[in-house]
């Protein structure tokens, strides 16, 4: 794996589209080990911020930088699970094998790693099933398995449990815990307070494109510093 690419540093990052400033002057750094949760109401800019971190979109201003020597393939060291993951039109196992194929992992090793990832996600029995015929919860677990199989140093997850029932959501949370335990840095977004309570080591509270608070999780929940965060915690923050 080599030296770590973390911390990831965002310096005065803005993102504009159609003349609107959707992310405004966000500065923070993400350190290895912890589970960082980006919390905020719908439309706060959580997905945009995650895509900026992952390098899918370029900031209109400011800088996103990894702490990696020149020439490091940082895109190979991170993975993302999208709010609506796109599964390829092939079997569950082939979906997990896909990123390994892209990286030229030999077939033999590929088979082992795919089996391991499917087992972690509790999908061994569905290995041969068409990915798009899986249930919503299974599809989400498959997307996580596909991301994890690349052994990313950082795993970004965008609302990994949106649209899932509580049991399926718990299964995803357990899976995320497993991925974290395997050594990956977790960066995820959610607007689900319960989930943030259960998973977060630290909270980044985002509101209308501004990073209003960044705090250790227990401190944030017991003692929010901004009016917006208190309102959000009480469940009555209106956009």
């Amino acid at each position: 794996m080599g030296v770590s690419i973390l911390p990831l540093r965002l310096e005065g990052v803005t993102f504009e589209a159609d003349g609107k400033r959707l992310i405004d002057g966000v500065t923070f750094d993400l350190r290895p080990g912890t589970r960082s949760v980006i919390l905020g109401p719908n439309g706060a800019g959580k997905s945009l911020l995650l895509r900026l971190c992952h390098g899918l979109i370029r900031p209109s201003g400011g800088e996103v930088s990894w702490d990696a020597p020149r020439g490091t393939e940082v895109s190979h060291r991170q993975a993302m699970v999208f709010q609506r993951p796109v599964l390829l039109r092939r079997s569950a196992a082939a979906n997990v094998a896909y990123p390994l194929r892209l990286r030229g992992v030999p077939a033999r090793e590929r088979g082992e790693r795919v089996a391991e990832a499917l087992a972690l996600a509790g999908l061994s029995a569905q290995a041969k099933q068409a990915a798009r015929s899986l249930s919503g919860g299974e599809q989400q677990r498959l997307a996580i398995a596909r991301a994890w199989v690349m052994a990313p140093e950082v795993l970004f997850l965008d609302e990994p449990t949106a649209n899932l029932d509580p049991a399926a959501a718990r299964a995803i949370e357990a899976l995320i815990d497993g991925v974290h335990a395997s050594g990956a840095k977790i960066v995820m977004t959610t607007h689900d307070l319960g989930q943030a309570h259960r998973l977060a080591d630290e909270i980044l509270f985002l509101h209308r494109g501004h990073l209003l608070e960044r705090a250790e999780a227990t401190a944030f929940f017991s003692n929010p510093r901004t009016a917006e965060a208190s309102a959000f915690l009480k469940g009555d923050l209106s956009w």
Partner: peptide
């Protein structure tokens, strides 16, 4: 975005 994320 999914394919770019997978570094294809």
């Amino acid at each position: 975005e999914q394919l770019r994320s997978l570094a294809a």
